[in-house]
């Protein structure tokens, strides 16, 4: 479903600040797989999602999604195939629009409405029906501006929006990192439920090793722009966070310095 091959990304090329974020990255995510990505800060996790979504153009290499070579597609065109939830709750929703309008916007991703009214009875009903899943009472606040919602509510709405319409690929970049533990847990369980229900091909970046092993079907670890570890099936099922840490040490011959990873 997603096929990233031989992708290299350099930021600030030919300047003193030049840094290589991805080094000849190859990553294939088969149809329906739920992949979790882990790695220290600056390892290239977000950059790899940005390459898939079109925010970052690689120096070389190819990105194929759903059988189509999207390497040269702009973001808005890729959004017909790919949807995503950002880390910052403010990014996934538009605070000046109402909850309903945000929903309609997400709906337009795969079914643009052009000169027809953005909102009709069908969209209103669908939005209310989806929002009921959250059990937050948001289905009764359809005409409230999204800016009035809390971070957790907004992130839950972002997730619903990203899974509206016909896109089959979902990218999640530490989408629970900005939330308090209880809300984070709620949004994670919601993610699992929706991904399973819709059989989405998903890639989730997370800061927590426990989360990476607990959710999804496969886990990869990034380090300095490369994938240094890739596990699925029985091998993964038998893994503990401590095993991951040991692996990291062995492969890199260095201590893992990122405290946040250890605590996760």
């Amino acid at each position: 479903m997603i096929d990233v091959s031989d992708v290299r990304v350099t930021f600030n090329k030919s300047t003193p600040l030049e840094s290589v974020a991805l080094r000849e990255l190859d990553l294939v995510v088969p149809h329906g797989q739920f992949l979790t990505i882990i790695g220290s800060n600056g390892a290239g996790k977000s950059t790899s999602l940005n390459v898939i979504a079109g925010l970052v153009r690689p120096d070389c290499g190819k990105v194929v999604v759903g059988g189509q070579d999207v390497t040269d597609w702009p973001i808005h065109q890729r959004s017909r195939l790919i949807s995503r939830v950002f880390q910052d709750p403010k990014m996934g929703t538009c605070e000046d629009l109402t909850i309903l309008e945000n929903f309609a916007l997400a709906h337009g991703r795969t079914q643009p409405r052009g000169f027809r009214f953005a909102i009709d009875k069908g969209i209103r009903e669908r939005a209310a029906e989806r929002l009921k899943l959250l059990k937050l009472g948001l289905e009764n606040r359809l005409n409230d501006k999204v800016g009035l919602l809390s971070g957790g509510q907004r992130q839950a709405v972002s997730l619903l929006m990203a899974t509206t319409g016909e896109t089959r690929v979902l990218l999640l970049d530490e989408h629970t990192a900005a939330l308090d533990p209880k809300t984070a847990e709620f949004v994670m369980e919601l993610t699992r439920a929706i991904v399973t229900e819709l059989k989405l091909t998903s890639v989730m970046v997370t800061h927590s090793m426990a989360q990476a092993l607990h959710y999804g079907d496969r886990t990869v670890m990034f380090h300095r722009g490369r994938i240094i570890f890739d596990a699925e099936g029985d091998k993964r099922a038998a893994m503990q966070v401590s095993d991951l840490l040991a692996l990291f040490k062995r492969d890199q011959g260095e201590e893992l310095s990122d405290d946040a990873l250890l605590l996760g």
Binding site: H76, Q77, G92, C94, L97, G108, R109, G114, R116
Partner: peptide
């Protein structure tokens, strides 16, 4: 401004990154 296109325009101004991620040609 209440059509699909008009709402896309409002989103493009208010949150360009989010609008682009939702298929709007900003």
């Amino acid at each position: 401004l209440h059509t699909g296109l008009g709402m896309n325009m409002r989103a493009a101004g208010a949150n360009p990154a989010m609008a682009a991620a939702n298929g709007v040609n900003v």
